[in-house]
Design a binder for these strands. Structure first.
Length: 313
DNA sequence: TTCCAGGATG
DNA sequence: CATCCTGGAA
Protein backbone atom coordinates (compact mmCIF):
# COMPACT_ATOMS: atom_id res chain seq x y z
CA UNK A 1 0.00 0.00 0.00
CA UNK A 2 1.53 3.25 -1.11
CA UNK A 3 0.27 6.73 -1.62
CA UNK A 4 -0.28 7.82 -5.19
CA UNK A 5 3.07 8.65 -6.68
CA UNK A 6 2.30 11.49 -9.05
CA UNK A 7 1.25 13.91 -6.39
CA UNK A 8 3.45 16.90 -5.81
CA UNK A 9 3.12 18.91 -2.66
CA UNK A 10 3.40 22.04 -4.75
CA UNK A 11 0.34 21.21 -6.84
CA UNK A 12 -1.49 20.31 -3.68
CA UNK A 13 -0.65 23.53 -1.94
CA UNK A 14 -1.39 25.70 -4.95
CA UNK A 15 -4.77 24.13 -5.62
CA UNK A 16 -5.82 24.28 -2.01
CA UNK A 17 -4.47 27.81 -1.58
CA UNK A 18 -6.53 29.04 -4.49
CA UNK A 19 -9.65 27.40 -3.05
CA UNK A 20 -8.93 28.60 0.47
CA UNK A 21 -8.48 32.15 -0.72
CA UNK A 22 -12.10 32.19 -1.77
CA UNK A 23 -13.63 29.78 0.72
CA UNK A 24 -11.89 30.18 4.06
CA UNK A 25 -14.43 30.16 6.85
CA UNK A 26 -14.69 33.38 8.79
CA UNK A 27 -14.17 32.22 12.35
CA UNK A 28 -13.71 34.46 15.39
CA UNK A 29 -10.39 32.88 16.42
CA UNK A 30 -9.00 33.53 12.96
CA UNK A 31 -9.18 37.29 13.23
CA UNK A 32 -8.18 39.99 15.68
CA UNK A 33 -7.98 40.21 18.54
CA UNK A 34 -8.15 36.47 19.09
CA UNK A 35 -5.86 35.33 16.31
CA UNK A 36 -2.86 36.83 18.08
CA UNK A 37 -3.90 35.65 21.54
CA UNK A 38 -2.55 32.15 22.34
CA UNK A 39 -5.02 31.81 25.19
CA UNK A 40 -7.94 32.44 22.85
CA UNK A 41 -6.57 29.95 20.34
CA UNK A 42 -6.21 27.39 23.11
CA UNK A 43 -9.80 27.95 24.23
CA UNK A 44 -11.07 27.54 20.68
CA UNK A 45 -9.10 24.34 20.17
CA UNK A 46 -10.30 22.77 23.39
CA UNK A 47 -13.86 23.61 22.42
CA UNK A 48 -13.30 22.16 18.97
CA UNK A 49 -12.28 18.82 20.45
CA UNK A 50 -15.14 16.51 19.52
CA UNK A 51 -17.39 19.45 18.78
CA UNK A 52 -18.36 20.98 15.46
CA UNK A 53 -17.52 24.56 14.53
CA UNK A 54 -21.12 25.76 14.34
CA UNK A 55 -21.75 24.87 17.92
CA UNK A 56 -18.42 26.24 19.10
CA UNK A 57 -18.60 29.74 17.60
CA UNK A 58 -21.27 31.25 19.87
CA UNK A 59 -19.85 29.54 22.95
CA UNK A 60 -16.38 30.76 22.15
CA UNK A 61 -17.58 34.36 22.01
CA UNK A 62 -19.46 33.93 25.27
CA UNK A 63 -16.48 32.33 26.90
CA UNK A 64 -14.03 35.02 25.87
CA UNK A 65 -16.42 37.68 27.10
CA UNK A 66 -16.76 35.94 30.46
CA UNK A 67 -13.13 34.84 30.86
CA UNK A 68 -11.10 37.17 28.64
CA UNK A 69 -7.72 36.17 29.99
CA UNK A 70 -6.08 33.08 31.37
CA UNK A 71 -5.80 34.78 34.76
CA UNK A 72 -9.52 35.58 34.78
CA UNK A 73 -10.32 31.99 33.94
CA UNK A 74 -8.09 30.69 36.71
CA UNK A 75 -9.78 33.01 39.17
CA UNK A 76 -13.29 32.03 38.13
CA UNK A 77 -15.53 29.67 40.05
CA UNK A 78 -15.37 26.27 38.32
CA UNK A 79 -19.15 26.01 38.44
CA UNK A 80 -19.43 29.15 36.33
CA UNK A 81 -17.15 27.65 33.71
CA UNK A 82 -19.21 24.46 33.67
CA UNK A 83 -22.39 26.51 33.39
CA UNK A 84 -21.05 28.35 30.38
CA UNK A 85 -20.06 25.04 28.80
CA UNK A 86 -23.71 24.01 28.50
CA UNK A 87 -24.49 22.62 25.06
CA UNK A 88 -20.94 21.81 24.12
CA UNK A 89 -20.84 18.35 25.63
CA UNK A 90 -17.94 16.54 27.24
CA UNK A 91 -18.10 18.73 30.32
CA UNK A 92 -14.83 17.40 31.66
CA UNK A 93 -13.13 19.62 29.11
CA UNK A 94 -14.37 22.62 31.10
CA UNK A 95 -12.90 21.18 34.28
CA UNK A 96 -9.56 20.53 32.61
CA UNK A 97 -9.43 23.94 30.95
CA UNK A 98 -9.98 25.59 34.30
CA UNK A 99 -7.27 23.42 35.82
CA UNK A 100 -4.99 24.24 32.92
CA UNK A 101 -5.38 27.95 33.60
CA UNK A 102 -4.48 27.49 37.24
CA UNK A 103 -1.51 25.32 36.33
CA UNK A 104 -0.10 27.79 33.83
CA UNK A 105 -0.60 30.62 36.26
CA UNK A 106 1.14 28.88 39.11
CA UNK A 107 3.88 27.00 37.32
CA UNK A 108 4.58 29.05 34.22
CA UNK A 109 4.09 32.63 35.27
CA UNK A 110 0.82 32.84 33.38
CA UNK A 111 2.46 32.39 29.98
CA UNK A 112 1.30 29.52 27.80
CA UNK A 113 4.21 27.45 26.54
CA UNK A 114 4.82 27.67 22.80
CA UNK A 115 6.24 24.23 22.07
CA UNK A 116 4.38 20.99 21.48
CA UNK A 117 6.19 19.15 24.23
CA UNK A 118 5.23 21.41 27.09
CA UNK A 119 1.75 22.12 25.74
CA UNK A 120 1.14 18.42 25.58
CA UNK A 121 1.82 18.11 29.29
CA UNK A 122 -1.05 20.44 30.22
CA UNK A 123 -4.39 19.02 31.38
CA UNK A 124 -6.84 18.36 28.54
CA UNK A 125 -4.19 18.94 25.91
CA UNK A 126 -3.48 15.91 23.73
CA UNK A 127 -1.48 15.49 20.53
CA UNK A 128 -3.91 17.44 18.37
CA UNK A 129 -4.43 20.44 20.62
CA UNK A 130 -0.73 20.72 21.42
CA UNK A 131 0.16 20.77 17.73
CA UNK A 132 -2.73 23.10 16.87
CA UNK A 133 -1.78 25.70 19.48
CA UNK A 134 1.92 25.52 18.65
CA UNK A 135 1.11 25.96 14.97
CA UNK A 136 -1.86 28.38 14.98
CA UNK A 137 -0.89 30.51 17.95
CA UNK A 138 2.88 30.43 17.78
CA UNK A 139 3.54 29.75 14.12
CA UNK A 140 5.44 26.50 14.64
CA UNK A 141 5.83 24.46 11.46
CA UNK A 142 4.64 21.21 12.98
CA UNK A 143 2.24 18.67 11.51
CA UNK A 144 -1.29 19.00 12.85
CA UNK A 145 -3.32 15.83 12.65
CA UNK A 146 -7.03 15.69 13.31
CA UNK A 147 -9.88 13.82 11.77
CA UNK A 148 -10.66 16.22 8.89
CA UNK A 149 -7.05 16.38 7.84
CA UNK A 150 -6.71 12.62 8.07
CA UNK A 151 -9.80 12.11 5.97
CA UNK A 152 -8.81 14.53 3.21
CA UNK A 153 -5.26 13.28 2.91
CA UNK A 154 -6.31 9.67 3.17
CA UNK A 155 -8.85 9.99 0.40
CA UNK A 156 -6.68 12.03 -1.88
CA UNK A 157 -3.40 10.17 -1.54
CA UNK A 158 -4.32 6.67 -0.42
CA UNK A 159 -7.78 5.83 -1.70
CA UNK A 160 -10.41 3.60 -0.16
CA UNK A 161 -8.09 1.00 1.27
CA UNK A 162 -7.11 2.88 4.36
CA UNK A 163 -3.49 3.35 5.36
CA UNK A 164 -2.24 2.69 8.85
CA UNK A 165 -2.21 5.49 11.34
CA UNK A 166 1.55 5.60 11.06
CA UNK A 167 1.42 5.90 7.27
CA UNK A 168 -1.11 8.67 7.51
CA UNK A 169 0.91 10.59 10.07
CA UNK A 170 3.85 10.35 7.68
CA UNK A 171 1.64 11.73 4.93
CA UNK A 172 0.60 14.70 7.06
CA UNK A 173 4.25 15.42 7.74
CA UNK A 174 5.23 14.96 4.10
CA UNK A 175 2.85 17.67 2.97
CA UNK A 176 3.97 20.28 5.47
CA UNK A 177 4.57 23.47 3.48
CA UNK A 178 8.18 24.47 2.90
CA UNK A 179 9.64 27.80 1.87
CA UNK A 180 8.48 27.42 -1.73
CA UNK A 181 4.89 26.87 -0.72
CA UNK A 182 2.25 29.61 -0.90
CA UNK A 183 1.12 28.39 2.52
CA UNK A 184 2.23 28.90 6.07
CA UNK A 185 1.92 25.72 8.12
CA UNK A 186 -0.91 27.36 9.98
CA UNK A 187 -2.97 28.34 6.96
CA UNK A 188 -2.31 24.99 5.30
CA UNK A 189 -3.74 22.96 8.14
CA UNK A 190 -6.69 25.28 8.56
CA UNK A 191 -7.37 25.08 4.85
CA UNK A 192 -7.36 21.28 5.01
CA UNK A 193 -9.75 21.38 7.94
CA UNK A 194 -12.11 23.70 6.05
CA UNK A 195 -11.92 21.41 3.06
CA UNK A 196 -12.70 18.40 5.21
CA UNK A 197 -15.53 20.11 7.03
CA UNK A 198 -17.27 21.62 4.02
CA UNK A 199 -16.34 19.60 0.92
CA UNK A 200 -14.61 16.35 1.75
CA UNK A 201 -17.20 15.37 4.34
CA UNK A 202 -17.47 11.90 5.77
CA UNK A 203 -20.91 10.94 4.55
CA UNK A 204 -21.42 12.63 1.20
CA UNK A 205 -18.37 14.41 -0.12
CA UNK A 206 -18.99 17.07 -2.73
CA UNK A 207 -16.20 16.09 -5.05
CA UNK A 208 -17.46 18.36 -7.82
CA UNK A 209 -16.46 21.39 -5.76
CA UNK A 210 -13.13 20.06 -4.55
CA UNK A 211 -9.89 21.71 -5.68
CA UNK A 212 -8.19 18.32 -5.51
CA UNK A 213 -10.71 16.31 -7.52
CA UNK A 214 -8.34 15.89 -10.47
CA UNK A 215 -5.65 14.22 -8.42
CA UNK A 216 -7.80 12.53 -5.80
CA UNK A 217 -7.54 8.80 -5.59
CA UNK A 218 -11.04 8.37 -4.20
CA UNK A 219 -13.05 10.94 -6.18
CA UNK A 220 -13.36 8.80 -9.34
CA UNK A 221 -14.86 5.97 -7.35
CA UNK A 222 -17.30 8.25 -5.58
CA UNK A 223 -18.33 9.93 -8.80
CA UNK A 224 -18.84 6.61 -10.50
CA UNK A 225 -21.03 4.97 -7.92
CA UNK A 226 -22.06 7.94 -5.85
CA UNK A 227 -22.45 5.52 -3.02
CA UNK A 228 -22.43 6.40 0.60
CA UNK A 229 -20.98 3.01 1.43
CA UNK A 230 -17.92 3.91 -0.55
CA UNK A 231 -17.69 7.30 1.09
CA UNK A 232 -17.84 5.61 4.44
CA UNK A 233 -15.24 3.08 3.40
CA UNK A 234 -12.85 5.91 2.63
CA UNK A 235 -13.08 7.39 6.12
CA UNK A 236 -10.06 6.26 8.12
CA UNK A 237 -10.55 5.14 11.71
CA UNK A 238 -14.29 5.68 11.93
CA UNK A 239 -15.03 4.40 15.42
CA UNK A 240 -18.09 2.31 16.12
CA UNK A 241 -20.44 4.05 18.43
CA UNK A 242 -22.05 2.68 21.52
CA UNK A 243 -25.61 3.34 22.62
CA UNK A 244 -26.26 6.73 24.13
CA UNK A 245 -29.86 7.08 25.35
CA UNK A 246 -30.12 5.53 28.77
CA UNK A 247 -26.38 5.20 29.18
CA UNK A 248 -24.39 6.50 32.11
CA UNK A 249 -22.98 9.31 30.01
CA UNK A 250 -26.52 10.30 29.02
CA UNK A 251 -27.60 10.69 32.66
CA UNK A 252 -24.33 12.33 33.66
CA UNK A 253 -25.03 15.01 31.08
CA UNK A 254 -28.60 15.39 32.31
CA UNK A 255 -27.49 15.76 35.93
CA UNK A 256 -24.98 18.48 35.15
CA UNK A 257 -27.56 20.22 32.98
CA UNK A 258 -30.11 20.24 35.81
CA UNK A 259 -27.52 21.58 38.25
CA UNK A 260 -26.65 24.37 35.85
CA UNK A 261 -30.13 25.72 36.46
CA UNK A 262 -29.24 26.38 40.09
CA UNK A 263 -27.62 29.63 41.03
CA UNK A 264 -24.12 29.54 42.45
CA UNK A 265 -23.80 27.89 45.83
CA UNK A 266 -27.26 26.37 45.65
CA UNK A 267 -27.56 22.60 46.04
CA UNK A 268 -30.16 19.99 45.14
CA UNK A 269 -31.01 16.82 46.97
CA UNK A 270 -30.30 13.45 45.46
CA UNK A 271 -33.98 12.54 45.49
CA UNK A 272 -35.01 15.78 43.85
CA UNK A 273 -32.39 15.18 41.20
CA UNK A 274 -33.78 11.69 40.69
CA UNK A 275 -37.27 13.00 40.06
CA UNK A 276 -35.92 15.58 37.65
CA UNK A 277 -34.11 12.84 35.73
CA UNK A 278 -36.32 9.80 35.55
CA UNK A 279 -40.02 10.10 34.72
CA UNK A 280 -40.75 7.21 37.09
CA UNK A 281 -38.12 7.73 39.73
CA UNK A 282 -38.38 5.18 42.49
CA UNK A 283 -36.37 6.03 45.58
CA UNK A 284 -36.01 2.40 46.60
CA UNK A 285 -35.02 1.12 43.21
CA UNK A 286 -33.00 3.98 41.75
CA UNK A 287 -31.08 5.44 44.66
CA UNK A 288 -28.13 3.14 44.17
CA UNK A 289 -27.87 4.18 40.56
CA UNK A 290 -28.11 7.86 41.47
CA UNK A 291 -25.31 7.38 43.97
CA UNK A 292 -23.08 5.80 41.37
CA UNK A 293 -23.82 8.52 38.84
CA UNK A 294 -23.24 11.39 41.24
CA UNK A 295 -20.13 9.89 42.77
CA UNK A 296 -18.70 9.40 39.31
CA UNK A 297 -19.35 13.05 38.51
CA UNK A 298 -17.81 14.08 41.82
CA UNK A 299 -14.69 12.09 40.99
CA UNK A 300 -14.38 14.10 37.79
CA UNK A 301 -14.82 17.36 39.69
CA UNK A 302 -17.98 18.09 37.78
CA UNK A 303 -20.14 18.20 40.90
CA UNK A 304 -19.65 18.50 44.61
CA UNK A 305 -21.52 16.19 46.91
CA UNK A 306 -22.19 16.57 50.59
CA UNK A 307 -24.32 13.75 51.97
CA UNK A 308 -27.58 14.02 50.02
CA UNK A 309 -26.79 17.41 48.57
CA UNK A 310 -25.32 17.97 45.15
CA UNK A 311 -24.19 21.13 43.36
CA UNK A 312 -21.75 22.43 40.81
CA UNK A 313 -18.26 23.03 42.19
C1' DT B 1 -36.65 7.59 14.73
C1' DT B 2 -31.77 6.26 14.45
C1' DC B 3 -27.14 7.52 13.14
C1' DC B 4 -23.07 9.83 13.63
C1' DA B 5 -19.41 13.61 14.02
C1' DG B 6 -15.68 14.73 17.03
C1' DG B 7 -9.82 14.18 20.92
C1' DA B 8 -8.20 13.22 25.59
C1' DT B 9 -7.56 10.09 29.13
C1' DG B 10 -7.18 6.00 32.39
C1' DC C 1 -9.78 -0.29 24.40
C1' DA C 2 -13.84 2.08 26.95
C1' DT C 3 -15.55 6.32 28.49
C1' DC C 4 -16.97 11.00 28.13
C1' DC C 5 -21.92 14.57 25.61
C1' DT C 6 -24.89 16.85 22.27
C1' DG C 7 -27.48 18.35 18.28
C1' DG C 8 -27.94 18.07 13.42
C1' DA C 9 -28.19 14.86 9.37
C1' DA C 10 -30.26 11.02 7.30
Amino acid sequence: MTPKGNMSALYFHSAVAEWYGRNARDLPWRSEPYVSDPYAILVSEVMLQQTQVDRVVPKFNEFMAAFPTLAKLAAAQLGDVIRLWSGLGYNRRAVRLHLLAATVLELMGGELPSDVERLRALPGVGPYTAAAVACFAFGAAVPVAETNIYRVLSRVTWGVDGPSRKDLDATVAAFLPDKASPFSASAWHQALMDLGATICTARSPRCGLCPLRDVCRTAPLLRQSGERDLAKASVPYAPKQSMFAGSARFYRGRIVEVLRGLSGGQAMSLAELGFALFDAFDVQRDTERMNALVDGLARDNLVVREDEWVQLP
